[in-house]
């Protein structure tokens, strides 16, 4: 039986390291969209379906009973468009229609829009927002979901 040459293992190790490095680099891209919550929120991970629920007000409270306060970034920004498309699965007009309908049906209004969501999420109890990874400040808010850069 032929022995596998040493350089094969070396190549495999290098390839593996390269893959890991690439994966790590992807996970930490400054253009990733990170979903952040206030420190008071006990939930440390959310699913994309839950995110949709929070931002469309289908879920109004966190599991501990604290009220969910979704915060959007301002309209007409690439971040808002990307989040709306990837998480809510909507266009701007569809989102507007959704909130107009909800207002007529149940009085729910759309989440507030702020320029600095990190600061807002840091200050408001129960808040959930999103920003680019490059704007995230460790220890100030908690990341619960990451949307990798497209």
């Amino acid at each position: 039986m032929r022995r596998t040459p040493l350089h094969f293992y070396l190549c495999l190790t290098l390839f593996g390291a390269l893959l890991l490095h690439t994966d790590r680099a992807r996970a930490e891209d400054p253009e990733d969209i990170v979903v952040i919550v206030h420190k008071s929120v006990a939930k440390k991970e959310v699913t994309i379906a839950e995110l949709q629920d929070y931002f469309l007000k289908n879920r109004l409270s966190w599991p501990d009973g604290q009220k969910v306060v979704p915060i959007n970034v301002k309209e007409d920004t690439p971040l808002r468009d990307a989040f709306r498309r990837r998480v809510l699965g909507m266009t701007a007009t569809q989102e507007n229609r959704y909130w107009l309908d909800r207002k007529i049906q149940s009085g729910h209004k759309k989440p507030p829009e702020l320029g600095n969501t990190v600061k807002a999420v840091y200050r408001i109890k129960g808040a959930i927002g999103y920003t680019y990874r490059k704007n995230y400040k460790e220890g100030v808010v908690t990341i619960v979901f990451v949307l990798p850069k497209e």
Binding site: V69, K103, G107, P111, G115, N116, A120, R123, K125
Partner: peptide, 27 residues
């Protein structure tokens, strides 16, 4: 823009409740 955000945040804090969604709406 930064100052406007700051003012908005202060306004929320002055409401003394941990919610930015308070207030009356007419539509």
């Amino acid at each position: 823009e930064e100052r406007l955000d700051e003012l908005q945040m202060t306004m929320f804090e002055m409401q003394e409740i941990d919610d930015v969604e308070t207030g009356i709406q007419v539509y």
